[in-house]
């Protein structure tokens, strides 16, 4: 569904991505592991287009989308759930979700998307008239994922969805990710610090370090390789 080939990008004159390549197969959870500063977030942002690619290619559903602007990518079914939430704090939960259905294609399905989102996150139905800025951290994370679902995506890229959450909530986030794959039929590209939980949920794993893909394999293969675990994952 998604192929990344020799992608290069960075900030100012500092290059962060040094030609990583990867593939995300339809209907799977692909997990991107690696230490802080490995370039994982930059990779997602460059795939999405919020960071400009310097070189390489992004192929989505057999189409070269490397230079396509972000709003068109959202329309094509690529969603990014960004690190650090980026909610609209002075809008209600409902308004935040409605913004997710901003594009016309998503707007047509707004009611069914809302039902789906409320069934995945029942608490958001109760909180729908509350300002997003007044929610707890865990609830805000739910809104961020839910808002991503409202765009009616086919591919969802999640950047550290469990960051800063209590252990119990981390489990809930991973359950939701599995549900999104199995019940909603989404393809998922996931960045996580939490390597253990990530290896549990993923179908395929890439290990990133210093802007490069250093290793890849099924979760079982990664777990078996003591070298990879010690060198890049610290587990």
């Amino acid at each position: 569904m998604l192929q990344v080939k020799d992608l290069e990008s960075g900030y100012g004159s500092m290059q962060v991505l040094w030609k990583p390549s990867l593939e995300v197969k339809r209907g799977t959870i692909t997990s991107l592991l690696g230490p802080n500063g490995a370039g994982k977030s930059t990779l997602l942002a460059t795939i999405f287009g919020s960071v400009e690619p310097w070189g390489g290619k992004v192929i989505y559903e057999d189409r070269d989308v490397t230079q396509i602007p972000t709003h068109k990518k959202v329309d094509m079914g690529i969603a990014l759930v960004p690190e650090g939430k980026h909610l609209f704090p002075n809008m209600s939960v409902y308004e935040n979700l409605s913004m997710g259905a901003y594009l016309k294609k998503a707007l047509v399905h707004k009611e069914e998307s809302l039902e789906l989102v409320y069934s995945l996150f029942p608490r958001l139905r109760e909180r729908r008239n509350q300002m997003a800025g007044s929610l707890s951290g865990g609830e805000q994370q739910m809104v961020t994922i839910a808002r991503g679902l409202m765009t009616k995506p086919k591919l969802m890229m999640l950047d550290e969805p469990s960051q800063g959450l209590a252990p119990k909530l981390v489990g809930e986030v991973f359950e939701t990710i599995l549900k999104m794959k199995e019940e909603v039929g989404l393809t998922i590209l996931l960045i996580e610090q939490n390597a253990d939980a990530s290896l549990e949920a993923a179908d395929y794993v890439y290990v990133m370090h210093e802007g490069l893909i250093k290793a890849q394999g099924t979760p079982a293969e990664i777990k078996q390789s003591a070298d990879i675990r010690e060198a890049y994952l610290g587990i």
Binding site: T70, H86, G148
Partner: peptide
Amino acid sequence: EDSEGARVCG
């Protein structure tokens, strides 16, 4: 409110 948030909404 949040330009990054707006971007991911399309």
